[in-house]
Design a protein around this nucleic acid. Structure first.
Lengths: 351, 351
DNA sequence: TCGATGGATGACATCGATGTTATCAGGCTA
DNA sequence: TAGCCTGATAACATCGATGTCATCCATCGA
């Protein structure tokens, strides 16, 4: 790989002059500039960012660590929608001229420390930790030494973070269902151990309370066992239980879009038309699912792309201002994605 | 950030001795070693890989570029299963002590050149290009200067590459269906412009020919319009056409798992039970779909994880041997994933 | 007792880009 | 024409880690 000295020799100038050309300094003759640029082009010269970093102490690198830390597997094949967070981050950083160094723990929490050490070795100017679902994490000591932004995760230390607004999400979705005439709203929740479980349940209850509908615990079932065969059995039992109620629900809210896929199949195997006899709603707006299902799925967007962008902007602010900023957390709201898996409920039909 | 000089000062030795401790050189007293290690620990010292790279000319970085180059959008939300390629690569490289610098073009081919320049600036020791589907690409000049491995892509120049074995895949899947008694096998293909279209069709025909079943063009329809609303219409028309045949198929092979999701819905909306009245098979083994559908989907695995691993090993071989190796391409085979969306066909039922 | 041997450590140069300071040529004024 | 200024360029030091060579001291054999 050619160096600045090679370029200087070929152009018949000093290395410093080549440097001046690269950095667009004014005091270079047009003639000299052309000669140098020709040499650079001919040699295919690209300046070494390692050498630059040594002098300037700026690497233009930002680290990102993903994967389970808590060892809290939410279940099987995630399909990696959280990658949209990474894309959002990368989009914003690239515009700012920064390069992202991505490390994946592969679900092994013990790998976090060595990965962060490697990133520090490359002198990253900041560090993101991206979780695959909304969760509490405890990062190892090494990570604390960095400008750190958590995405989809938070910690006890109050590290700056970007989170989805789970309460608002479920509330807005439930309100939309109510607005379409549904009164009996089944809720197949996420596992109770998940942070989002409680938040979403709060949102669900808030939406009911706002219009004076009493909360009915028999409509709410935790049936997500993470895609395993036993999950299917639990889910089938849950759906059957809801169908067997004296006053069965007119719509099923699923904790995520993946659940909705299976629910479509189970309902139809029971002879229940979707959405004719039972409406279905999801959560996540995991588009491969929500747009592909037939009929397309009404769902709540989990705004991963925008969360990533927000996190990147937070990081850029930190890098620019220099001083360590105050702890802060941002919650990002998604939109209800209304599609044809929900038909008007009985309250509207009666009118 | 602490430097080797800070450590040396604190430990009361020369920087060179600190270096010796780090690199595990023998000629250091146990006492000295302990003193130095204590200082390193206390200062939270991590050696600068930039400084190391300057002397050694080895950065331990490998670049990876993903995203569309050909500008050949296969359609809408991909769900990014090709990320498993990246994971496979990272897994192998991490074991070899290399770090992956990932750049995403975001689907904009013009961004490839600046991204590659950035990667070269970081003096990556090799470069991967990962495509989101099996395709031919033409990489810009800059990329040629690198040790390059294409994954899920190939070019005219005969650059080393790793590809899925599409012929074998469709053939093996079709043979499995035949072995289960199916004779009339509907085939909803990928778009004809896709490389895999022709290969898979060859595999399908080969499987039929091997057992003497005549190829019936009315069973083969290209209906994938990439998830757009008009696609659903095209797909419904295709399914209806197949159902209306004098001798309708007993199983539908879908060009990918996403198509199968919609096909499940369409069939059931037509009152056709899956798999009771019509079996369905997919392609990709996109597990979020194939394991989540009810019933779970029989499909052909697209071995992205292993393709990534193979590509990484190919790269490691290149890096180790030093000299530029001969062009080569590797095809990787997947396995038939047999699940309950396919029931025995009429030929077996008759027995 | 002295030189030889070798083990432990340090001094110095080096990698490539760049900040700082020096140099040099040309043009202007007095 | 001497003196000075200015614009263009070069020389040199520097960032942090490490290869090369030098140095120092302890120990051993003659």
């Amino acid at each position: 790989m050619a160096t600045i000295y090679d370029v200087a020799t070929m152009a018949g100038v000093s290395p410093k002059t080549v440097s001046r050309v690269m950095n667009g300094e004014a005091t270079v003759t047009a003639r000299t500039r052309e000669t140098v640029e020709a040499a650079m082009h001919q040699l295919g010269y690209v300046p070494s960012s390692a050498a630059r970093a040594m002098r300037s102490h700026r690497t233009g690198l930002v680290g990102l660590v993903t994967g389970a830390i808590s060892g809290h597997p939410v279940g099987g094949p995630s399909g990696l929608p959280e990658l949209q967070i990474v894309e959002g981050i990368q989009r914003v950083l690239a515009d700012a001229g920064l390069t992202l160094l991505i490390s994946d723990t592969g679900g092994d929490a013990t790998r976090v420390t060595p990965l962060v050490r490697t990133l520090r070795g490359h002198r990253v100017e900041g560090l993101f930790y991206v979780a695959d679902h909304h969760q509490r994490v405890t990062l190892p000591e090494v990570a604390r030494a960095e400008r750190l932004v958590l995405v989809n995760a938070f910690d006890e230390a109050g590290t700056r973070c970007v989170l989805p607004d789970d309460i608002h999400g479920q509330q807005a979705l439930t309100e939309a269902l109510i607005a379409h005439g549904h009164r009996r709203i089944g809720f197949l929740t996420l596992p109770t151990a998940i942070v989002a479980h409680r938040l979403r349940l709060d949102g669900y209850r808030a939406a009911l309370a706002a219009v004076g509908i009493a909360y009915d615990a028999s409509l709410v079932i935790d049936a997500d066992r993470g895609g395993a065969p036993e999950e299917r059995a639990a889910l089938m039992a849950a759906v059957d239980a809801l169908l067997a109620l004296d006053a069965p629900p007119t719509v099923l809210c699923c904790g995520n879009d993946r659940l909705a896929v299976t629910v479509y199949g189970i309902l139809r195997a029971r002879g229940v038309a979707v959405p004719g006899a039972m409406s279905v709603a999801g959560y996540d707006d995991y588009r491969v699912i929500s747009e592909t299902l037939y009929p397309p799925l009404t769902t709540m967007e989990l705004p991963y792309g925008r969360m990533g962008e927000q996190a990147a902007r937070m990081m850029l602010d930190e890098l620019r201002c220099g001083a360590a900023p105050a702890p802060a957390s941002i919650v990002v709201r998604g939109e209800v994605k209304w599609r044809s898996s929900v038909t008007p409920g009985p309250a509207l039909e009666i009118r």
